[in-house]
Structure formats: structure tokens, C-alpha cells
Amino acid sequence: MDVFMKGLSKAKEGVVAAAEKTKQGVAEAAGKTKEGVLYVGSKTKEGVVHGVATVAEKTKEQVTNVGGAVVTGVTAVAQKTVEGAGSIAAATGFVKKDQLGKNEEGAPQEGILEDMPVDPDNEAYEMPSEEGYQDYEPEA
């Protein structure tokens, strides 16, 4: 019985440690998101679009440190934060509304985080759909 109880105690310690790591990862992701939003706020009209992409990228980098179902929630929060940063930029006159959601080359930025393969159960990952990809044929 002692062996059984000791095993359960060790398992509990492992769960607590994993929860603490997840909590730490979420806190880091939130900190990076805040950094990115402050970065966007300090940019001029020309830099705002690039700044919004930076927020998304920093958040995406930190999301990889967070495991399990938390990833889905962090990704949703990050996307809403990026959308909010863009709205703030438009409201303050840093950028025109028609410039939001495009990178410096004018290509749409939507789907940055949505296409990231995420499995809350950590069982399997699927690649994003290939609808947006084109076949590449090298020139002879």
C-alpha cells in the first residue's frame, strides 16, 4: 500500500510541476504579447503594419512553449490582441483601416495563427491545408 501511495504522490508532483510550467509559459506569452502591443503603439504610420505582424510573430513563438489545451486559448487571445492593436492603430490615425491585415508588401496577414497546427491532446499534428499553395516548377 505504501508503494501505491508513494507512486500516487510522485504522479501528483509531476502534474503540479507540469501545471506550473504551463502557467509560466502562458505568463511569458502574455508578456511578449504586451511587449508587441507597446511596440505597435510606438510606431509611426509606416511601421504600424509591420508592428502588428511582430506582435503576432512574438506571440506565436511563445505559444510553442505552452502545451496542451492552453495553446488553443493563448492563440485565440493573441489573435484578438493583434486585431485590437490594429483597431487602436486605425482609431489613433497611425494607419488607414484599409491597410490593416496586410503586410508591407500588401499581402493579407489573416491566418497567421489560424494555420498553425495545434492539437490540445498532444496526440497528432496535421499540416495546414494546401489550398493556398501553388506547385513550383523550376525553369529549365
Rank of each mutant, 00 (worst) to 15 (best):
D2H: 08
F4G: 00
F4E: 00
M5L: 00
K6H: 02
G7E: 04
S9E: 14
S9L: 10
K10W: 06
K10A: 10
A11C: 15
K12S: 04
G14L: 14
G14N: 08
V15W: 08
V16T: 08
A17Q: 10
E20H: 14
E20D: 06
E20V: 03
E20P: 00
K21R: 13
Q24V: 06
A27P: 00
A27H: 08
E28M: 09
E28K: 06
A29H: 02
A30I: 15
A30N: 00
G31Y: 15
G31K: 11
T33H: 01
K34W: 15
E35K: 07
L38S: 03
V40Q: 00
G41C: 11
S42F: 13
S42K: 13
S42V: 10
K43C: 10
T44K: 01
K45F: 04
G47S: 14
V48C: 06
V49T: 10
V49E: 03
H50G: 04
G51R: 08
V55S: 01
E57M: 06
E57V: 04
K58I: 14
T59D: 00
E61H: 04
E61N: 06
T64A: 09
V66K: 03
G67C: 11
G67W: 09
G67K: 05
A69I: 13
V70I: 10
V71R: 09
V71T: 04
V71G: 02
T72C: 11
G73D: 02
V74N: 01
V74E: 01
V74Y: 07
T75R: 06
A76I: 14
A76L: 11
V77G: 03
Q79L: 13
Q79C: 09
K80P: 02
E83N: 08
G84Q: 11
A85N: 02
S87P: 06
S87I: 14
G93K: 04
F94S: 05
K97T: 07
Q99F: 10
Q99W: 14
Q99R: 06
L100E: 09
G101Q: 09
N103M: 12
G106P: 12
G106I: 12
A107F: 06
A107Y: 05
Q109P: 09
I112T: 07
I112Q: 05
L113D: 14
E114S: 11
D115M: 08
V118T: 03
V118H: 07
D119N: 06
P120D: 06
P120T: 11
D121L: 08
N122H: 07
E123P: 11
Y125I: 13
M127S: 04
M127W: 05
S129C: 08
E130N: 11
E130W: 10
E131C: 12
G132S: 03
Q134K: 13
Q134F: 05
Y136I: 09
Y136W: 12
Y136E: 03
E137A: 08
